[in-house]
Simulated assay, not measured.
Amino acid sequence: MRADARRNRDKSLTAAVRVPAKEGVDARLEPIAKEAGVGSTPLYRSGADGSMTGTAHDVNRFFSALASGRLLKPADLAAMQTTVPVPPDSGEPAGTRDGLGLFVNSLSRDGSYLGRGGSGFGYVIRTAPTTDGRRGITVSAHTRPADPQTAARREDTLRSLVDHALCHTA
């Protein structure tokens, strides 16, 4: 990445934390771009399949900041974390709860994490900060199998990796 692009990205990510913390969930991209000193077009720019442009590190930084309360007003974060059980046939692990844009998943040891995932052509991503935002992991895998059995094994492997990373840290 070019040095100026990296600088603009870093300024944009910093502004993306500060502006919603001041303005709440209704913050728009234009004030974020203004605070970062960049045009708003790069903030809207996405990949060819409409996916977010960023790295696993960027996503992990964002969701850890979200979970720790650095992005939203407390009432807004509480609303996002107010959850309901997902239906048993949803494909999510037993005990998963769904909030506003976030899943809350139990860990094999005490605690839980906020989950969010996505996929595009040839990749999947899973982000998982603990509910207090002190630890987190984002896993990006360069695969998107069409075979349902392989996809299910991949999901199990991703969940196991997340659980291991959050429960077995030194």
Score class of each variant (00 low, 15 high):
Leu43Lys: 09
Arg45Trp: 02
Ser46Met: 06
Gly47Val: 01
Gly47Asn: 05
Ala48Tyr: 09
Ala48Met: 15
Gly50Asn: 14
Ser51Pro: 00
Ser51Arg: 15
Ser51Val: 11
Met52Ser: 04
Met52Val: 06
Thr53Trp: 11
Gly54Leu: 01
Thr55Met: 11
Thr55Val: 03
Ala56Lys: 04
His57Phe: 10
Asp58Cys: 14
Asp58Ala: 07
Val59Gln: 07
Asn60Glu: 07
Asn60Gln: 10
Arg61His: 03
Arg61Leu: 08
Phe62Arg: 13
Phe62Asp: 14
Phe63Asp: 07
Phe63Cys: 04
Phe63Tyr: 03
Ala65Thr: 12
Leu66Ser: 02
Ala67Arg: 00
Ala67Trp: 00
Ser68Lys: 02
Ser68Pro: 12
Ser68Cys: 15
Ser68Gly: 11
Gly69His: 04
Arg70Cys: 06
Arg70Thr: 10
Leu71Ile: 13
Leu71Gly: 00
Leu71Ser: 10
Lys73Phe: 11
Lys73Asn: 02
Pro74Thr: 09
Pro74Leu: 07
Ala75Ser: 06
Ala75Arg: 14
Asp76Met: 04
Asp76Gln: 12
Leu77Ile: 05
Leu77Thr: 01
Leu77Lys: 00
Met80Ala: 07
Met80Trp: 01
Gln81Tyr: 08
Gln81His: 10
Thr82Asn: 15
Thr82Ala: 04
Thr83Trp: 13
Val84Gln: 15
Val84Ile: 05
Val84Asn: 11
Pro85Cys: 12
Pro85Arg: 06
Val86Met: 13
Val86Phe: 01
Pro87Lys: 13
Pro88Lys: 05
Ser90Leu: 08
Gly91Phe: 03
Glu92His: 08
Glu92Phe: 08
Glu92Ser: 03
Pro93Thr: 10
Pro93Asn: 11
Pro93Gly: 12
Ala94Ser: 03
Ala94Pro: 02
Ala94Asn: 13
Gly95Phe: 13
Thr96Tyr: 05
Arg97His: 07
Gly99Ile: 02
Gly99Phe: 10
Gly99Val: 00
Gly101Gln: 05
Phe103Ala: 07
Phe103His: 12
Phe103Asp: 05
Phe103Glu: 08
Val104Leu: 08
Val104Trp: 02
Val104Asn: 09
Asn105Cys: 05
Asn105Ser: 00
Asn105Glu: 02
Ser106Met: 05
Leu107Met: 00
Ser108Cys: 00
Arg109Val: 04
Arg109Trp: 01
Asp110Trp: 02
Ser112Gln: 07
Ser112Tyr: 05
Ser112Arg: 05
Ser112Thr: 09
Tyr113Gln: 10
Leu114Ile: 11
Leu114Glu: 06
Gly115Ser: 10
Arg116Phe: 01
Arg116Ile: 01
Gly117Trp: 07
Gly117Ser: 04
Gly117Phe: 09
Gly118Asp: 14
Gly118Met: 06
Ser119Val: 14
Ser119His: 09
Gly120Ser: 06
Gly120Gln: 10
Gly120Tyr: 13
Phe121Asn: 14
Phe121Gly: 13
Phe121Trp: 07
Tyr123Trp: 10
Thr127Gln: 06
Thr127Arg: 00
Ala128Trp: 09
Ala128Arg: 05
Ala128Asn: 11
Pro129Lys: 04
Pro129Trp: 14
Pro129Ser: 06
Thr130Met: 03
Thr131Ala: 12
Asp132Met: 09
Gly133Pro: 02
Gly133Glu: 12
Arg134Ala: 15
Arg135His: 11
Gly136Met: 04
Gly136His: 09
Thr138His: 11
Thr138Glu: 02
Thr138Phe: 04
Val139Asp: 05
Val139Cys: 04
Val139Pro: 00
Ser140Ile: 08
Ser140Asp: 02
Ser140Ala: 14
His142Gly: 11
His142Leu: 06
